[in-house]
Design a binder for these strands. Structure first.
Lengths: 154, 154
DNA sequence: CCAACTTACGTGACATGTCAACTATTCCCG
DNA sequence: CGGGAATAGTTGACATGTCACGTAAGTTGG
């Protein structure tokens, strides 16, 4: 890629940071997925769904709300929930208040699965990410991601 | 998820940083992909492949080397290159030195496509990420990602 | 009340990514 | 040499994600 005067290309520092970001963005989820698969029957998306469900007292969340929390497309979630239901991890339940709506409900099997998988997963996250950073760095990283996220909204 | 004494769960700060990281990790590529699609015929993976090819003088890279640079599975790349070749963005070429190998070669069409798409893409990256951060923050972020990447290697 | 609109979700066709073979070379070493 | 192991890349079956559209239920203004 040749530098063009008309294009505000990135500085060397920015470019380096950007490339590392991209690399990390590719490798970290891959690692988490592999480790999760190795010692559980869950994929990373499965895990994310189950986390959201365990966040609710009754393990029972409306599809749209779940999609919002996960930042997933509705149809993606719909497909995924269908597959998870087939494996017994969750169930679907009609919403009485609103005839259109439905809930995704955590089953005993699903709860057991995430409770079994979570400790190792957290250890992986800690080992891969937080053990590499000082407390101040964690705070700073949190601030930076917040700033960027705020910009994405607009 | 209940905190278990046996599990080294994350501190509140860590958890907050982690959740933001995950959110950003999901939303930023999504934005880049959307914007890229809007004003070019390229997907984000297409773009990444083309960047690697333009990095080479002759726009001509061995499959394995390309997979390494992109951190992609061989077969993913193979499939993707086949599709890109069908659209005329790249071509495959046999390697004379090594009868097993082959090159992916940038075509005129591919070069035109990335040169047309790059400026807007860079602007998006700048607007979404770097405009939100100070110079020091960019440096710090680069250092952190480097540390974490280093840990992923082992 | 009812027609138009919106919202909630599902579905099917298709694009993309993964995994486990497979083919064809090249390498290594007796 | 020659034969087994490694390497380069492809392939096909399958899992996953996207997009456009469909259906049903709620909402709203005349």
């Amino acid at each position: 890629m040749t530098t063009q005067t008309s294009t505000p290309w990135l500085t060397d520092t920015e470019q380096q940071t950007w490339r590392r970001w991209l690399a990390l963005n590719a490798q970290l989820p891959a690692l988490l997925h592999r480790e999760l698969q190795r010692d559980s029957e869950l994929s990373l998306p499965d895990f994310d769904v189950l986390v959201q469900l365990t966040d609710d007292d009754r393990g029972r969340v409306r599809i749209a709300q779940l999609a919002e929390a996960l930042q997933w497309e509705r149809s993606r979630l719909s497909h995924h929930v269908t597959r998870m239901a087939r494996r017994g991890l969750v169930e679907k339940e009609d919403c009485l208040d609103d005839g259109r709506g439905s809930f995704v409900v955590l089953t005993a099997v699903g709860r057991a699965a995430i409770e079994q998988a979570a400790p190792a997963h957290v250890r992986t996250v800690r080992r891969a990410v937080f053990d590499a950073l000082s407390d101040e760095e964690v705070v700073l990283l949190g601030e930076m991601t917040e700033k960027v996220l705020a910009r994405l909204g607009s």
